[in-house]
Amino acid sequence: MTHAVIAGAGEIPATRRPGADVTTRELLIAASRAAVADAGLTHRDIDGLGVASFLLAPDQAVDLSWQMGLRTTWLAEDILSLALLRHAVRAIEAGDASAIVLVGGDKMTGRGFTAMMEQRYSSVWRDQLAPLPIGGPNSLFALLTQAHMDRYGLTRESYGRLAVSQRAWAARNPRALYRAPLSIYEYLAAPLVADPLSIYDCPPLAAGAMAIVVADRKLVKRRRGACRIAVRSIAASYNADLHDGDGLTTGISAVAPRLWEQSGVAPTEVDHFEVYDDYPVMVLAQLQDLGLFTDPAAFVAAQPGDRPWDRINTSGGLLSGGQCGAGGTMKGVVEAVRQLRGSRGPGQLDNPRFSVVTNYGLVPYRYGAGAVGAVLEGDR
């Protein structure tokens, strides 16, 4: 355990159709200010800034720092927003900063997403995938879902149980984008986007931003009411199989042993999991890589109330909460902070102690190349 703690969190809830006057920069600044206030700090206390955003360009972290009126000694940018937490923890430990804002988000709309994937995402997408009529990553992950179904004997209903469960959590989250009840029958009857994926398997693009403050424990110790969420362990893996694998085993498989060893926490001790849910199949893949089960079919067949089946993505995840670009995983961190400090409101778990958050993404060709995981502990 380090002496760096998560001291505050802020969120600008996702919206599906943002106004023309809404900008990615404004979303990031608003979420950052909310997190700083939540930590009981002021902008004068902040000496570090980390940014995860696809659409802030051409501006960078240094520009956002100036626009926020921050004088900083540490800056970072990373599209995997959970990776920023890893960088920030190391910076606090090294004495490079004492209070760092980490913010992720985008004004992500259909048109903006298409332009990003075709022009700015990567040279592989621009040169090899964009010219093909594949419709973006949905088609790629439809193929992964088909392979997963074949290997483990799953059906569309298997993945639907995750989507329905997360919608039930979203119904108790006033910040979630979609809160109306979703039944398995509605899920199965939904239009297909890329067989076997339906509209409920693909996170809706949205505009929004999430932020946290990572600070030296000594700095926030004197702040009355300030939360102090400990980072028990955090680890990352990139290009774990160099895209020579089948995609059903993620980089989390390389991360998990370090997470459990460094934290001293076993998977069975974790109270809830905030797993990156760009598609339900990847939720199951990451949970399996974390060591929760060996048979996905048996896991999804478990009855509601069986732990940890009913403790996954308690915010509603991206599938019901909206995909705000590079801020996707920050949503899971913010939810973990709220649960661990007991401020979730409706949907609050009973005195949770440990949370696990994962980040999966960076699709250079066929599936995600980056994976980050963290074990967090509450200190109430």
Rank of each mutant, 00 (worst) to 15 (best):
I92N: 06
S315P: 09
C202W: 05
F273A: 04
R90G: 10
I12W: 07
P304Y: 03
R71A: 13
Q262W: 11
G327A: 02
A369P: 08
D350G: 06
L80E: 12
Y279A: 00
P280N: 05
I184G: 08
I29D: 11
T2V: 07
G110V: 02
Q262M: 12
V270I: 13
L248S: 07
A94V: 06
A99Q: 04
D295A: 12
Q262V: 06
M116S: 08
S32I: 06
L248P: 11
V220N: 03
S198G: 15
D59W: 14
P308Y: 05
R223Q: 05
K107R: 11
P181A: 04
L376N: 03
A298G: 15
T358F: 13
V255Q: 13
A9C: 11
R126N: 08
A285N: 05
L376T: 04
D295P: 14
R17D: 13
P18K: 07
A235H: 15
V231I: 01
D310E: 14
V300W: 10
L162Q: 10
A211G: 10
T250S: 10
Y152N: 06
V101S: 00
G327H: 10
P181Q: 02
Y367F: 13
N313S: 04
A230V: 01
D289P: 12
I12H: 09
S165N: 13
Q348G: 12
H43A: 13
A142Y: 02
L162Y: 11
R380M: 03
Q60A: 15
R228P: 00
V265A: 12
Q146E: 06
L197F: 08
E118N: 12
G264E: 05
M330F: 04
D306W: 10
G332K: 02
S198D: 13
R71Q: 10
R222S: 14
D21S: 09
R16K: 11
K331D: 01
I252W: 11
V101A: 04
V270T: 10
L242I: 14
L197H: 01
L64F: 11
Q60Y: 15
L129V: 05
S315T: 04
I212V: 15
